[in-house]
Amino acid sequence: MISPRLIVAATAMSISFTAFGGGTHGGGHGHGANAGEPGKAGDANRTVSIKMYDNYYEPETIAVNPGETVRFVVQNKGQLVHEFNIGTPDVHEAHQKEMMMMVEHGAIQGGKLNHDMMEMDMGDGQSMKHDDPNSVLLEPGESAEIIWTFSKQGNIEFACNVPGHYQAGMYGDVNFN
């Protein structure tokens, strides 16, 4: 009764992760090209502080120059788990399905991340690890850095794709000067 359901879920996950893999790892394929690519610390001449609250960012817009590399210092000041993810709206939408799965499997539980669950082998070499260079997923009180190069102009948002958060308005606009 139960095992067929699990297989279905695992299959769905690997499909979605595979689809996502192509989309966000920067470097010139898929949608990732529009959002930019991981930057080198030495190229960043500016630090932008992003504070994550329940459920919104401060600030909600940032302005960058095409080609600029920015160091983001992201702090979770809320009581819930939040993400800071740089991408196009389409990429965010695809990623939201994965995050939904993380919630369904207990990898994200309100204010906590279950790291063991995220490491778990889901088959086909897939896991729910959240280690893409364009995003960080933080528990309350945690902070992290992302160095990102906005290679060229595009429709880019930073967003929290924890289920419901983006829809409720936890996103910000990247405006190009």
Partner: peptide, 17 residues
């Protein structure tokens, strides 16, 4: 349309799609 529930009986809830 998907709906994101953000409040029930006047009190904010963690958003649910």
């Amino acid at each position: 349309l998907e709906m994101t529930v953000v409040q029930a009986d006047g009190n904010n809830v963690q958003p649910v799609n």
